[in-house]
Design a protein around this nucleic acid. Structure first.
Length: 572
DNA sequence: GGGCGAGGAACGT
DNA sequence: TTCCAACGTTCCTCGCCC
């Protein structure tokens, strides 16, 4: 942004239009696009809110610059030592033994619509509505720079021939399932991150069949095409962070293979813009660029001392990993931490209507929770006001809830405290789960004591059977073998429950003072607490001691890996 | 005064 | 003429408690 930007060319400073140009869009007149979006957005409430958010980011940048300026030579030397040590540790954790594939369907929703209605072929197509489009095909991309993230009416202005098709998620899920059928043939434990994206570990298949990753990638793309009639792009690399970047390089209908060699990775990373990395979005890019002048992944290492001086250890680890091209190579199981439902509608102040909307959302959320046997004890109400300001109000309850009535009742209390109000979105979120046991009412109860654990351990192997080494035979709770501690607590729970029942059967009432557990610890509380503690403390300040590899690994994993199934950044 | 948890905001896809 | 999502996680701040 130049000094004159806000004068003659105000659109240049409108951050909303900063976006990650995709492959095949080099010929687009970016300035025209940026100008049109600015002109059409200007003056709207949405625009005003964007300006407000931008001002906050700018303030943050100023604060960080001031923080930087305060660093003495001694501070910087100290931070450099910490950074260098950490870089060495990350380097030693580099795993080049795995071959990961990231598969990304090309303009998925638009491609499905075109496949089912060939008359759309060759036309610029947007899936969605005038308010927001989900996906556009490549005909649109070559005209207006970006395949999505536009309001429909703006896209229409930029591309007057644009044809709109409403979304049909059942259709997309059907095609997505077809792609997953193919993925299973290459990696039964593949990780789906959305309807159209997945990670596959093809190490074994390459080894067993004595074929190159290039051949497998090609075969996979052909198999997807044969099964669905749709094309995809794939990236092959030693870890998921890099595979994701690689899949974007030869899009659409292409592939890019990054060899499992350190030198090749460092060369690849050296000039890679940071925005290409999953997990670095508009704001992070803006901050790194304007505070530290970091534009490429390589520069993360050059500015490592300053990164250590400004960011939390979790963030530092991520940034340094990006600089080294180190990413996660394990297939890890992730547990959901929250579930939510939200709806946007025309702004209203009508309280009866607002409560009606909230009741509908409570019902949807309750249904979703029932499908996954989830009971939560923290309820968060989200409100987006007419001026696009987002507020959240949360409450933690004395018992785990799931029913629509319970959710609505507690949400009502939260909402009443905010009235009167003019809103355009209401959302409800439940978190702090207890999975699978409707009678686990009191979150304050204790888990098994050490004595009880010793007493019970002898027989617990006989209590819980893990179906497919994965699902609890007694309650259906899903825990993979790697969750050793969580499984232990889960077994303890069922055994205690069984013994308690026996006690009742034998004596007519529960043994006094021995009510060891009434909560199904699918997510072990002790483990969770430790993870939270670790992450929390780390977020506060940067310790002057050098981090241990083990601690940092668990923290970084905590940061993202335990996240939801579909919105997890892919770099870990 | 430090640990800890809750709540709210920010961020990313 | 006017229209800009849905979902999930992490980060940061604040206040309580020992």
């Amino acid at each position: 942004m130049g000094a004159t930007s806000d004068g003659d060319r105000p659109w240049e400073s409108y951050q909303t239009v900063y976006t990650n140009a995709k492959a095949g869009m080099d010929g687009v007149d970016k300035e025209k696009v940026q100008r049109v979006i600015y002109e059409m957005s200007k003056g709207s409430k949405y625009f005003e809110n964007e300006q407000r958010k931008e001002a906050i980011v700018k303030q943050r940048i100023e604060r960080m610059r001031a923080q930087c300026a305060k660093l003495t030579a001694k501070d910087i030397a100290q931070f450099q030592m910490i950074a260098d040590k950490r870089i060495l540790e990350l380097e030693s954790s580099r795993d080049l033994s795995k071959i990961w594939v990231h598969s990304d369907m090309d303009a998925f929703y638009a491609a499905v619509e075109t496949l089912e209605n060939p008359s759309l072929k060759g036309k610029p197509l947007a899936v969605g509505g005038k308010s927001m489009i989900c996906t556009a095909n490549y005909e649109v991309c070559t005209e207006i720079w970006c395949s999505c993230c536009y309001a429909g009416f703006i896209a229409l202005k930029l591309c007057p021939n644009l044809v709109f098709v409403p979304t049909n998620f059942d259709k997309y899920m059907n095609y997505s399932e077809k792609t997953r059928k193919v993925f299973r043939g290459y990696d039964p434990n593949f990780i789906a991150t959305s309807l159209d994206e997945a990670y596959l570990n093809i190490t074994t298949i390459c080894k067993d069949r004595c074929v190159s990753s290039q051949e497998v990638a090609e075969e996979l793309r052909n198999a997807i095409y044969e099964e669905t009639g749709l094309t995809c792009s794939v990236g092959v690399a030693p870890n998921r962070l890099l595979a994701k970047v690689c899949s974007d390089i030869n899009k659409p209908n292409g592939q890019f293979i990054l060899p499992n060699e350190r030198k090749a990775i460092l060369t690849f990373i050296s000039s890679l813009p940071i925005r290409k990395i999953g997990g670095i979005g508009k704001v992070t890019e803006h901050i790194l660029r304007d505070v530290l002048g970091i534009n490429t992944c390589e520069e993360m290492l050059k500015k490592s001392a300053y990164l250590c001086g400004l960011f939390s250890p979790c963030s530092i680890d991520f940034f340094l990993s990006v600089g080294l091209g180190v990413g996660n190579t394990d297939t890890q199981f992730r547990l959901r931490k929250s579930i939510s439902s939200e709806r946007t509608f025309s702004s209203t102040e009508d309280q009866s209507l607002i409560f009606k909307k909230m009741e509908e959302i409570a019902e949807t959320l309750s249904n979703d929770m029932q499908k996954e046997s989830l009971f939560g004890r923290t309820l968060t109400l989200k409100l987006k006001t007419t001026s696009f300001e987002v507020k959240t109000r949360a409450t933690s309850l004395q018992k785990y809830i799931q029913s629509k009535e319970d959710i609505f009742s507690h949400a009502t209390k939260l909402l009443k405290a905010e009235l009167p109000l003019s809103v355009r979105l209401i959302g409800l979120r439940m978190s702090h789960f207890c999975v699978g046991t409707p009678h686990s009412a009191d979150p304050m109860q204790k888990t098994l004591s050490a004595d009880n654990r010793a007493l019970l351990s002898r027989t617990q192997e006989e209590v819980v059977l893990w179906i497919n080494d994965y699902m609890c035979s007694l309650c259906g709770c899903e825990l993979p073998p790697s969750f050793v501690e969580e499984r232990q607590e889960h077994s303890d729970y069922h055994l205690a429950e069984m013994l308690q029942k026996e006690s009742v059967d034998n004596f007519g009432k529960p043994t006094q003072g021995s009510n060891p557990v009434q909560k199904s610890p699918c997510v072990g509380r002790s483990a969770r607490k430790r993870r939270n503690k670790s992450a929390h403390n780390d977020g506060k300040h940067i310790p002057s001691i050098v981090f241990s590899n083990e601690v940092r690994k668990s923290d970084a994993r905590n940061m993202y890996h335990m996240s939801g199934f579909f919105s997890m950044p892919d770099w870990m």
